[in-house]
Design a protein around this nucleic acid. Structure first.
Lengths: 210, 210
DNA sequence: GACAGGTGTTACCGGGGGTAACATCGCGGG
DNA sequence: CCCGCGATGTTACCCCCGGTAACACCTGTC
């Protein structure tokens, strides 16, 4: 890919950025073109199709978040502190620009069938970083490849969903949220005591299980 | 909701189901109408708009998965076994009908801006079940409300992302996947030993952190 | 027979992504 | 000098999608 010798492209991306900032992803090509003071065909000449534009736009922002997460992952800290640092980095990132965050995290709805895109490309990269970090830093025995990969995806999805909820309803401070998630990864759910069993019978399920 | 005294509705939903099964979500109203042997306006009379149709369709399938998960959550087992049971139930569910699963898990792209839909409605219900189960079964002290809610979302997102990956690339058996995820929740990441530090310097990050 | 309600149709609207064809500028080389 | 060439821009169009208006039909009931 050409380094930066296409200033026009940058201009157009800036316009697209403004529109997305304002209207969220799903902004129409017409709107973006208008913001740039031009008409659609030019956009298509530069980016091929809508996906091309969106991809270019996300790659711009992804680099920042990805670099930040990667740096946090290789910080020379105790493991718990490092994990907290990574979590905090991610949450800070999505807190700063929610609209951009939405663009990064929400898988483009357009693609035809086929499973495997619960995680948008940007998040898949983050999952990959986590996987590599776990694999290279933690002793997991024979299963390490499988575990690292599954955990990379799992942790990413966990932080995505929890972060989304946090951003939406702001139930607590960022640091407290980081603690809550780190606690989950630290097995606090497993370690906590049982509550005195006051089992109330579940409402009758009316459909047979899948 | 009317019990079942609208057989026509059921018919239409069956047709819609077939189309979604075949083409994935994003199937057009025209396609669904054609499959049912009719034309669009009838669909709109019955379901209002596309969202209505999709919602009716998802609710059908959701009830099964949701009931199964709920049942698994209140199974009288040791905690670890119960968690594994829940994980297995979910994975078995998505394994059975991937297209339907996609419909359930992918948030409808249509809605205008606003964060908070990393989890589709069906998954939000599951998250709610987990939250309630944790809150009523586990002793988490003063923070229990916050932790239960955050964990409900987090665990759901984790299983979503990991399950998606598993379904896509089938890296291992279902039971092994269940083990991997349960291990993560049990703090195995935290407990494992460090690997001998062979730190290779990360490739220079070129963009400033977010 | 008139009315009501469900079933069905054709034809249209607005707007989305995407493209073809044409117009215009600036600029380097015969 | 002017020709061509490449980038920039335009208008006008295509197809498909979600959604709706208007009209036609059949069937049972009072």
């Amino acid at each position: 890919m050409p380094p930066a010798d296409e200033p026009r492209r940058e201009q157009l991306l800036n316009a697209a950025d403004r529109v997305v900032q304002r209207e969220g992803p799903g902004a129409s090509m017409n709107a973006i073109a208008a913001e740039a003071g031009i008409t659609k065909p030019i956009l298509y000449r530069h980016f091929g199709d809508r996906n091309g534009l969106i991809r270019a736009l996300t790659e711009r922002h992804t680099s920042g978040l990805l670099a930040a997460v990667r740096a946090a992952l290789s910080e020379p800290l105790e493991r718990r502190d490092r994990v907290e640092h990574v979590l905090d980095t991610y949450l800070a990132g999505i807190e700063a620009r929610p609209q951009v965050y939405r663009l990064l995290t929400h898988p483009e709805p357009g693609d035809p069938s086929g499973v495997g895109n619960a995680l948008a490309p940007a998040l898949r990269q983050i999952a990959g970083e986590i996987t590599r970090a776990v694999e290279s830093q933690v002793d997991l025995g024979a299963d390490r490849e499988l575990l690292a990969e599954a955990w990379g995806r799992g942790i990413t999805g966990m932080v995505l969903a929890a972060g989304d909820w946090w951003l939406e309803s702001r139930p607590c401070s960022r640091t407290r949220m980081v603690q809550a998630l780190a606690d989950l990864l630290w097995g606090r759910l497993a370690a906590a005591a049982d509550l005195p069993t006051a089992v109330l019978p579940a409402p009758a399920a009316e459909a047979p299980p899948v």
